[in-house]
Design a protein around this nucleic acid. Structure first.
Lengths: 221, 221
DNA sequence: CCTTTCTCGTTGCATAAGCAACATATATTG
DNA sequence: CAATATATGTTGCTTATGCAACGAGAAAGG
């Protein structure tokens, strides 16, 4: 990917291609390609740099004691790998809680956060913009975590679903919207069983609270 | 609070008092005091600046439709108010999902994030340090959210507790440690009933998995 | 078109845990 | 110390929901 194409990456928002080039060279950024299935970060690794997905898709997951994997997040173009880790470790170094592997052929741009956090010698303008974009990216992510927690802490499936659909409705700006998940994914997100979720959705439809078909929903409240 | 005392605030880590003064004046920071019970941010407010607690304590909470409040977070010295909001809104403006009130007499330093994200005319050194500290602060917070989610998504109370105690053990660096919560708080955090939590803790003690007394725990695994 | 695969809905059963009510223990206050 | 308040533990009852098994419909693939 050339610098001009990188303008669409969130990290480089408001930077033109020459600024991007400058930042990348100034801070020693480098890209790596991964074939499908290859591992980018292994659980327990200590990271000093973070990665930005330039192309393809990655999956972050944990394994429990029995070895069963469960997905923590799916990372698409513009998404970050190990950013929280690198960011948080400014106060205390930590090791990665997740393994990240390439779901597709994957291209990642790596940047050393510690260098980014030192003043650069030249014109700081692009530098500060990048830091701002980083703050925006992490904030956005943290917001999404809060929203998920808002769903998770509801006592019943009906309330979890209501919270989730309210959020999605607000996001879409209307009563009718399509959610990104299929049933299985939605159930995972809300931490319930797919079948139990289907059962409750049926009941809610019967009660006249919602209507839906597949991933398209309409709420009546 | 004078600039020298602010050196202990996370946002100003690695800055000396004269740098802090410079940053505060350069970006137009100002402090506000709140009497106990006063509101700092109301649910729905749009924020362009964020706050740092310099003294006292604040509580962030939501109210559901019935008006019942539930605490989202407790903010102590060095903690942030509305940072995620201000940070995330660099891409799209949002309104606060929580109300923040003073639990004690409270002092808050407000800083306009949008100004912080523009290059300053003078020496950027302190400026970049502050941005780095912000990234560290948000990253740390997001990590904590992930850790809580790791607990919440466990299917049974026993597994929630095991996850939580593992985390705390890792944090403490040993098998014996004291947790910050009382039973009620711990139950809230894990999103269970206090009595159900007590029941399960008893069982786990009986099964020889843990020992505890009040908030002091010892794990045997 | 037929076959296979995937997604989603339905339902009976078993159980973890919410809830309420009470018991005990520890802390606080006068 | 007595008395009250607060934190934690215990237990029976009830229920939401996990789980498994199955069916229907749509999509995919040959």
């Amino acid at each position: 990917m050339n610098y001009s194409e990188m303008e669409r990456i969130g990290l480089f928002r408001k930077l033109n291609s020459s600024e991007i080039r400058k930042v990348c060279t100034c801070f020693g950024a480098y890209t790596r390609n991964y074939a499908k299935g290859k591992t980018v970060v292994r659980e327990g690794d200590v990271l000093k740099q973070f990665g930005v997905v330039l192309g393809g898709q990655a999956r972050a997951f944990k394994s429990d004691v029995s070895g069963k994997e469960f997905t923590v997040s799916v990372i698409n173009e513009g998404g970050y790998i190990g950013l929280l880790l690198a960011g948080g470790s400014s106060s205390c170094p930590r090791c990665s809680p997740v393994t990240v592997t390439a779901s597709d052929r994957l291209t990642v741009l790596f940047l050393p956060l510690n260098k980014l956090l030192r003043q650069c010698s030249g014109n700081c303008s692009a530098h500060v913009k990048v830091l701002g974009n980083l703050i925006g990216g992490i904030s956005e992510k943290a917001m999404l975590l809060y929203e998920r927690i808002d769903c998770l802490i509801k006592p019943t499936i009906r309330e979890k679903v209501s919270e989730y659909l309210s959020q999605q409705s607000k996001l879409a700006g209307g009563d009718s919207f399509t959610v990104a998940f299929d049933r299985e994914g939605m159930a995972d997100y809300l931490n319930t069983e797919r079948s139990a979720l289907s059962r409750e959705l049926s009941k809610m439809k019967n009660d006249g609270l919602i209507d839906y078909r597949k991933s398209s929903f309409k709420i009546f409240w």
